[in-house]
Structure formats: structure tokens, C-alpha cells
Design a protein around this nucleic acid. Structure first.
Lengths: 244, 244
DNA sequence: GGCCGTTTCATACGATTGTTTGAAACGACC
DNA sequence: GGTCGTTTCAAACAATCGTATGAAACGGCC
């Protein structure tokens, strides 16, 4: 519905994501939303509360758009891990998202405000524990909790890299390669392969022969339900994701 | 003669790093530097030129303080990779640095400024190529350039994660563990271990017996000279910033 | 129509911002 | 001591910000 409140939220998202809290102005937000200047204070109290609500709004949209798929409990751990990484990459870089949504959330990760603590509690911690549970199935019982957690961070870090440093990536990789080989799904497959190799579930990268591509096989075996494993190789990253 | 000029630069670093360009105020910078308000405009022209100079200053200090160590050409690739990762972690999180330096540079990575893309080119590309050269020695000849580059990004991504998402890490990990197991050097050893396992130079993590810690042995063999095992494990969230 | 709670509007206020200004202080040289 | 270019200083400027205010418009309900 084009309620004034949601119109403001939708207009505030890109502004906060692009300029940050301080540099964003309520005048700009209200102008884009087509509402009066005083509407922000009327509906949200003040600018800070609007910001918090906007972060929540972005987060809610993001999780709704790319839910973590349910997998059978007896699925192979490597398949669960693959699904986890694909979902994460889709959330972080996915082409189906308005680019301001992950941008705003990343801004929160980099400089947490009160809105972030709740996100950590409601969102990051449960997902972290899902990942840790998957790793539990793949690691020896002697593996210390710290080590498990750092392995989880190694996997998550690979994913977030392309969001955080995406601008640098697009400067280091030539445009053609970027368009051909850096679609979110392709990056996900690489991260899955790299991580499973570290875990011993894939052969190490130093022993690969060019022929068999296990990750592709795995992708077919446990693809995300909706047809998103389509051939979008040519689409790449252009436009929103790696540019300001 | 440049006394006030460098005093301003040193004061501007933390302010820009903490609050970002827009939210930082020249009044705050001048107050911390103990100079008159008009000094910024006199010595730098305007706020934006001061920011650019501050980024350059931070980058110069950072590279001087933690140079990439020279290794013998015939060193084992795994040892070179370990040195590379340790240097990177030291630059990114190192205790010997003023924390504002990497923070400011990370801010640039996230949102490159017009005049600072050159820094990205002069700084990141050479280091990326050093890493690629190391990987060349460890990977089969058939490995495609794209694959090599993405492997490099997987390694770099693990390092940068703790800088970008450090605040969330400190919310996910309890304080005691953070202090005990998350020093930059320890994180570096984990990343080295994880990456070498993926590359096949270490046994996979799923086959570890608790006893022998190869990475520690490797650390002793080629450690970074200065022993900086100081106490800054993880800076928490210092209050809710609603600056930028 | 008359009433009332809710929402929108134009406008104004106080605070803070980057930048400017003109005078004062300084230092070297004659 | 006097002069000149350089640097510092307190004060002010114009612009912009978040927020507050009181009136106008709206929409049910009697």
C-alpha cells in the first residue's frame, strides 16, 4: 500500500544506503517520497528512529526475498553447506534485490548502531549457529569451538568480501572477465569448492584435473528450488552491484 | 614549518576514520589538533582536500610500518603464502598500528573517492599480483586465471572479514574467547591453515588429530620479526554511532 | 451540518556546518 | 627600528540541517 509511512521507508532506504545516516537529509527523503517535511517527525518521531526502522525494513525485505531453504535433516553436510553459501551470496549480491538493501545492511555491519545489535541477535547469530551445526557434521569431534567458529568466519568472509570490496574487485578484474565469471552464482560455486576442499570434502585445488567439475554436479543435486540455476552467465555484475 | 600541517593530518585521521567524511567536522579536527579553525582552509584549501591528504598520509604510514617482507625466491610457496597472510593481517588488524589507519583505508575500499582510486591501483594491484604469483607455484598449470584470481580473493576475503565485520564478530564471540583466541596473529594462522588445506598443502581440516599443529611450526620458522602479541584483541562497539 | 481525532501542510526556529575575512603576531632581512 | 611575506587568530557569514508549531484539510460518525 502506498501508505505515507511505507513511502517514506522506501525512499529512505536508498538515501541512507548511499549517504549514510548523518549525510542523508530528511528533506531529501521527503522530497523523494513526495511527502511533507514534517511527515518524518510525525510518523517516526525523529531521524534516528526512521533510520532504525529503515534498517529493519531492509532486513525484513531481504530475508523474505531470499529465505534460507529448508533441507532434509539427513542431507549430506556438503550439500547443506553448499545451500548455505548459495543463499548467502544471493542475499548479499543477488540480482533480485534492490541494491540498496544489502548496502544498508553492510553499513550496519561496518558501523553498528542500535539497529545492528538486534540484527545480530535475530539474524546473524541464528545463521551462524546453522553454519556451525553444518560444520559439526564435517569436523572431527576434537575440533575446538574456537576453531569451528573461525572456520565459519572463513566461509562467511569469502562471501562478504565481494560485497565489501566489490568496488576494488571491479578495478582489479577486467570488465569482460567480470561479466563472464563473477556472477553471484559462479562466485558461490567457487567459495563452496574452496571451502569444501579445505574441509576435505573436495579434493584439494592443487590436485585438480581440468575434466570433472564436482561443484556443478553438486549444484544440480541440491539446487535452490526456484529456477535460479539458470544460465545467466552473460548477465554478470554490471550496473548496480559493483558501482556507486 | 609543517608543524601545524602534520598536526592537522594526525588529528584528522581518527576523526575521518571514525565518523566518515561528511560527519567529521573541521571544528573537531582543529580542536583536537590544537590549532585555529581557519588553519584547515589555510593549509589544505578545503575539507575535501584535507580528506584526500589524510587518506594518502594513512596509506603511506601503513605501508611504511608493515612492509611486505622479502623472501628468498626459492622459499617454499606455502611459506611465502604464510608470510603474505601474516603481513596482511598485520596491516589490517595489527596491534602496532593506530587503529584509525586501516579503518580509514577500509572506508575507502567500501566507497572509493574519486582521487583515491589511484591508491587502490598502486597498492592493491601489486599485492594481488604477488599473491597470484605465489598461487601459481601451488596450482596445476591447467588452473584458469579466473580460478586463480578467485582463490586469491578467497584468501584476501578471509583476512578483510575481521576488519569489516569486526564489530559483529565481537558481538558473536564472547569476550573471554575474543581476548584469548582472536589476536591478529592467531587469526592469521587459522587463515593460513584453512587456505593451505584448500590448496592441498595442509591436510584437510576433517582429518586432524588434536596433537600436531603444523601452522605453529610454520609460524616459528618464518615469523614476522617484531613480536607484537599485545592486548588489543577486538575493539568492541564503542557506543552507538549515529554519525555517518 | 457539526464535531473530533488523524494526518498533512507551509513556515519558522535554533543549532551546526564549511568557509571567509581582516587584523594581529611572527620571523627574517635590510 | 622598519618592512614584507607568512602564519595564526577571533569573529562572522551564508547555507543547511533536524525539529517544532499552529493552522488547514481530511474522514468518519452523530
Amino acid at each position: 500500500m502506498d501508505d505515507t509511512r511505507t513511502r517514506i521507508l522506501q525512499a529512505a532506504g536508498p538515501v541512507f544506503a548511499e549517504r549514510g545516516f548523518r549525510a542523508a537529509t530528511v528533506r531529501d527523503i521527503c522530497r523523494r517520497a513526495g511527502v511533507n517535511l514534517a511527515a518524518v517527525n510525525y510518523h517516526f518521531g525523529d531521524k534516528q528512529k526512521l533510520y532504525i526502522e529503515t534498517v529493519r525494513y531492509a532486513h525484513r525485505l531481504r530475508v523474505e526475498q531470499v529465505p534460507l531453504p529448508k533441507w532434509p535433516d539427513d542431507a549430506a553436510p556438503r550439500a547443506k553447506l553448499a545451500l548455505f553459501v548459495r543463499t548467502m551470496m544471493s542475499r548479499v549480491l543477488g540480482a533480485d534485490a534492490q541494491p540498496w538493501q544489502p548496502r544498508l545492511l553492510m553499513r550496519e555491519v561496518l558501523q553498528p548502531t542500535e539497529a545492528c545489535r538486534q540484527m545480530v541477535h535475530d539474524y546473524f547469530r541464528p545463521h551462524d549457529e546453522i553454519l556451525l551445526a553444518i560444520l559439526d557434521e564435517m569436523l572431527p569431534a576434537e575440533t575446538s569451538p574456537t576453531r569451528r567458529q573461525q572456520i565459519a568466519f572463513s566461509i562467511i568472509g569469502q562471501c562478504l568480501f565481494y560485497r565489501f570490496a566489490g568496488n576494488v574487485v571491479s578495478l582489479l578484474v577486467d570488465a569482460d572477465t567480470l561479466a563472464a565469471d563473477y556472477a553471484p552464482e559462479q562466485l558461490a560455486e567457487h567459495i563452496i569448492d574452496f571451502s569444501l576442499a579445505a574441509l576435505g570434502a573436495h579434493p584439494p585445488l592443487s590436485e585438480r584435473r581440468p575434466a570433472p567439475d564436482e561443484s556443478a554436479e553438486l549444484a544440480r543435486a541440491a539446487a535452490i528450488p526456484a529456477g535460479d540455476e539458470t544460465d545467466r552467465a552473460g548477465e554478470g555484475i554490471e550496473g548496480d552491484h559493483f558501482h556507486d
